[in-house]
């Protein structure tokens, strides 16, 4: 029953301070949100605190959500990233010294609303990236380094780094928005050849 309620409808209801809708939103998104934050936060407790801050922001910001600035998961991702980077600024702390997110961990085999398996789609998309684009995204878009830190790590001018990120995101968007065949849940999701 609850699966029939779209994210957008949930946000509309949360904007009216509907706690039941917020609980449904929590059940639907908190697990993955926590998984992402744990990839980047050093301590389990810190990850839960941060997830709490992100979800509290969802509660506060729901009245200002506009669908034309991104779907709800993208909006949630941006809120989470802002909270993470704010925390790093305050504490001068990083998730791990490497700072990169291992993109092979995006491996859920649950089908999305369109019947495609999200992880398979994301892996296909990642396989379309050049190594240098993937590295830039792993560090500065999905991972735990600032643009400046990433540029220094990769020994690149800042402008070149941003160009790689932008080009990489454009490729991800192209691949991920291509209409693809529905994939039944549980289909093995092989990582693309490097």
């Amino acid at each position: 029953m609850t699966d029939e309620i779209t994210d957008r409808e949930l946000i509309r209801r949360i904007a009216r301070e509907d706690r039941e809708a917020f609980r449904l939103f929590y059940d639907r998104h908190a697990g993955r949100l926590l998984a992402y934050i744990r990839m980047l936060a050093r301590e389990r407790e810190a990850a839960e605190d941060l997830a709490q801050e992100v979800l509290l922001s969802v509660w506060r910001k729901a009245p200002s959500y506009r669908p034309d600035r991104g779907d709800v998961p993208a909006w949630l991702y941006t809120i989470a990233r802002n909270k993470l980077v704010d925390l790093w600024r305050r504490r001068s702390a990083r998730a791990d010294e490497d700072g990169a997110v291992d993109l092979t961990r995006f491996e859920s085999d649950e089908p999305g609303a369109d019947g495609r398996v999200a992880a398979l789609s994301v892996r296909q998309a990642l396989g379309a990236l050049k190594a240098e684009q993937r590295q830039a995204l792993e560090l500065a878009y999905f991972g735990g380094l600032t643009y400046e830190e990433t540029a220094e790590r990769l020994d690149l001018p800042l402008g070149t780094l941003k160009s790689r990120i932008r080009a990489g995101l454009a490729i991800l968007r192209d691949v991920l928005t291509e209409p693809g065949p529905a994939v039944p849940a549980g289909t093995p999701t092989e990582a693309p050849a490097p």
Partner: peptide, 23 residues
Amino acid sequence: RAEVAAVSAPGGWALGALPRLPA
């Protein structure tokens, strides 16, 4: 707003591709 939607979309897709932990 449309440009923000475009550049934040891969983050949303990635979030959806993570294995769901028990909340």
